[in-house]
Design a protein around this nucleic acid. Structure first.
Lengths: 279, 279
DNA sequence: CTAGACCTAATGTCTAGACAAATAACGCCT
DNA sequence: AGGCGTTATTTGTCTAGACATTAGGTCTAG
């Protein structure tokens, strides 16, 4: 709101002269460092973007000028620019130049967070109350999802999830026993399930697919969530996969509709290398 | 499910010999074409990936072999590989090689679709019934969102959205008059709003931010959506921005909870050039 | 005053190398 | 067998150029 520099002023007064000092002049790189040059430059420019030193609309000096300034090859500089462009931080146009993108257009990859992480990210204090913990034979659809044989079992964990001491969600998580044998040894009311999996089993989830729907809560859900009358719930079914693509977790979460909403960032026009599927 | 080639077999029997014919041998590039070489290669490999000719786990020939095969420089090949890597289609590791990623780990960027597009993508027939169309003075929060002055007005469009002839959602869209003056001339029951904006005003939305929550419908919503008793609704508040970052659209959609659910793809660990914000 | 030709500056594409660093496989020695 | 150093293979990083393509401005001819 209180930007002193408009794009036009920047363009004419500062950018186009190679002699003038630009905000980029302050960047120093270390060619002998263990982090590659292109990363040093991308991070340096990235923090100038984040701090607002380079405002949206700012026209960067031409690549050749920057190359000379940093004493590097143009391909190396372009590797740095490519990283910034990939995240939607800058926008290069042939014959014109490179411009800092409007902050609202920066690409935010949808990030998969655990309940604890999400609550903390929203500035709350996460807690858990364990309702039940079982090692059970899965129903056929669950067994199919986990690609299990007849006799293999899954852990079924039901917890009430609290934010700042208040019930927020009811969580029913399922994990195959094969991936985390002995899970019953851990105190799931105290520790984050994702931390246990990571630290004790070396297992991390890599991608998630979530389906979000709205429902009227049943009496059990109303009781466990202390739901006021005439309140809907947000139901999130999450399928989580590991780094090698194997299914890891199948969770159904029921959130209080009056206290929680999901947030999605999306972009228009997903031009992909892959041909469109159409399903 | 019926893959004949396991990663190991591929590795030992096909990939590691530069003389043997690999599925990549079929790729032909045209150095004089208007599409750059690296794009030709990326698209060619991309379609081999999509068709399943290169199954997950398949080890690609070394870069130097491919370079020789295509008669191109290594940097050019790496530019193609970079595109594929960016979409999570392949995974390169120094000292090891490049492997085709498991299909579930392919990065799907969350895509912003209009109602019509989404219904069609799900295999349905979209329709609209116009309820009201007004040019009104916005409330202060709406005016703030659109960054308007005191007297500037916004179009307010209420429609019932149908899928295959059945009511699915109630949509309340708002657009600033300034961006699309004369919008009232168009038949919004017949044409897609996004198509009108694109074709008649040259306006496209670039990014969206959606907030999804669950509510109990009021009597008006129940009536317009022909909602059965004891059904919740999914409420989606969408903020859409144009290619230059200016706000374009503010829409509140109310979906039937028994017929619609939102789907989200997300990834774990969003390593970014930008320092973490923490808000 | 306008239309078109020309020029300039910017990014896009590409080359043919070089060295570095990580990994895995091999062979040797114990 | 088992551990350890060596070596070969592979991708990662980087260079110093070259020409192509695009956009926009300038100049000129009509």
């Amino acid at each position: 709101m209180s930007r002193q520099i408009t794009p036009t002023q920047v363009d004419s007064a500062v950018t186009r002269s190679t002699q003038t000092i630009t905000p980029l002049s302050s960047i120093r790189i270390d060619k002998d460092a263990s982090t590659p040059i292109y990363l040093q430059i991308a991070e340096a420019i990235g923090s100038l973007l984040a701090s607002g030193v380079l405002p949206p609309g700012y026209v960067l000096p031409p690549e050749r000028v920057l190359c000379a300034q940093f004493g590097i090859s143009r391909m190396t500089l372009r590797q740095a620019m490519s990283l910034l462009d990939r995240e939607g931080l800058i926008n290069s146009r042939r014959g014109v130049g490179t411009v800092v993108t409007h902050s609202r257009l920066r690409k935010q990859e949808q990030e998969a967070l655990s309940f604890s992480e999400e609550i903390r990210a929203r500035g709350g204090r996460p807690e858990s109350r364990l309702i039940s913990f079982e090692l059970a034979i899965p129903t056929p659809p669950v067994r199919d999802f986990f690609e299990l044989h007849e006799l293999q079992k899954v852990y079924e964990i039901q917890r009430v999830r609290l934010k700042d001491g208040e019930p927020l969600a009811l969580e029913f998580a399922r994990l195959p026993e094969r991936l985390c044998p002995g899970l019953e040894r851990f105190d799931l009311a105290r520790s984050s399930l994702y931390e246990i999996l990571d630290q004790s089993y070396g297992i991390r989830t890599e991608t998630c697919e979530e389906e979000i729907s709205a429902e009227i809560p049943n009496s059990r859900q109303r009781k466990l969530l202390s739901l006021p009358a005439r309140t809907a719930v947000l139901v999130i079914n999450r399928k989580a996969y590991m780094e090698d693509g194997r299914p890891l977790e199948l969770t159904r979460s029921v959130y209080r509709g009056d206290r929680y909403s999901a947030i999605i960032h999306s972009v228009r026009k997903n031009r992909s290398i892959l041909p469109a599927t159409g399903s």
